[in-house]
Design a protein around this nucleic acid. Structure first.
Length: 292
DNA sequence: TTGCAGGGGTCAA
DNA sequence: TTGACCCCTGCA
């Protein structure tokens, strides 16, 4: 592979075991706030669904174990989803010239930026506005239960994220049971714009970040923060720097002082972290949130 | 028990 | 630039 790690596939157990993988920790990666649907199990492992596939990921003895995973799915999907072929060693070396960031990276050393599915990511962050994580998760879960497809795994039922056509066909009344409040109309607007092709999420990935951002912000309920999150977590825009209250707090405290405006914070990130802004944001965000 | 503030922002005026 | 906002939770 050329990225330091190697893997073994056990076809009888449908398990991929990855060895010598650095800079990856499931707890850091799945709980750093970039995703809402990876569930932590009692044994500390995580179960998640993407592309209609469900796997369990467990870190053990320095190895990473992917259960319910075919070799084909690993190579063609999960590898990219988990961002395993990005060289985090080099990125971290570049960022570590900054003392604050080095401390944040020591703390959240195992964060990787997932390459999530764009539509799910977009809707999830539309739901996240002016909301707290437990409620965000609850709303998304309910939406998947009502409008996704059921998949059984390990004796439990899981649900896929609904596709844009399904959500686009719904009314606000249909969505009332998920209790998303005023975000309900945003969900419908976003779904209809994607389903109709007015917004082509896959194509946005190839556009310059500013252009893609402006496109996304044509959707109701999508402002600068939601657009940045969607681009960073699902459209491979590593230079996107989502500024939420936590990032505002920590950037003001560590770098710019109390008076810094939102605009100044964005400009600061662009200048200081450049193409690595997104990953820098995740380390800072996780560090700020876990340590208040 | 009840009431109130505030939350991973965004919209509309 | 400034309130209002659905709903939920934590805390007097």
């Amino acid at each position: 592979m050329g990225y330091g790690y190697s893997y073994e596939y056990d076809s009888a157990a449908a398990t991929v075991t990855i060895s010598n993988l650095e800079h990856f920790d499931p707890v850091h990666t799945f709980l750093c706030g970039q995703c809402f649907r990876w569930e932590q199990e009692e044994d500390g492992s995580f179960t998640g669904i993407a592309q209609g596939k469900i796997i369990n990921i467990k870190a053990e003895d320095g190895k990473l174990c992917l259960s319910n995973c075919s070799e084909d799915d690993f190579l063609n999907f999960w590898c990219r989803y988990l961002d395993l072929n990005t060289d985090y060693g080099t990125i971290k070396a570049e960022l570590s010239s900054d003392d604050h960031l080095r401390r944040a990276m020591d703390f959240g050393w195992g964060i990787r930026l997932l390459n999530q599915e764009p539509f799910e990511c977009l809707i999830s962050f539309v739901i996240s506005t002016q909301n707290q994580i437990p409620r965000i998760k609850k709303i998304i879960k309910k939406m998947c239960e009502l409008f996704g497809e059921k998949i059984s795994f390990g004796g439990k039922d899981y649900y896929t994220f609904p596709d844009c056509e399904t959500l686009a066909s719904l009314t606000e009344d249909d969505l009332a049971p998920i209790n998303a409040g005023y975000r309900t109309s945003y969900i419908i607007d976003a779904s209809r714009k994607v389903a109709s092709g007015e917004i082509n999420l896959e194509k946005l990935s190839a556009l310059p970040t500013d252009t893609a951002k402006a496109e996304l912000m044509k959707i109701k309920g999508v402002g600068p923060k939601v657009a940045d999150c969607t681009m960073l977590f699902s459209l491979q825009k590593g230079d996107a720097f989502p500024v939420d209250v936590w990032v505002q707090r920590i950037v003001r405290e560590l770098y710019l002082g109390e008076g810094a405006s939102l605009k100044q914070i964005s400009a600061f990130a662009k200048e200081k972290f450049g193409t690595n802004s997104g990953i820098a944001q995740q380390y800072l965000f996780y560090y700020a949130r876990e340590n208040n």
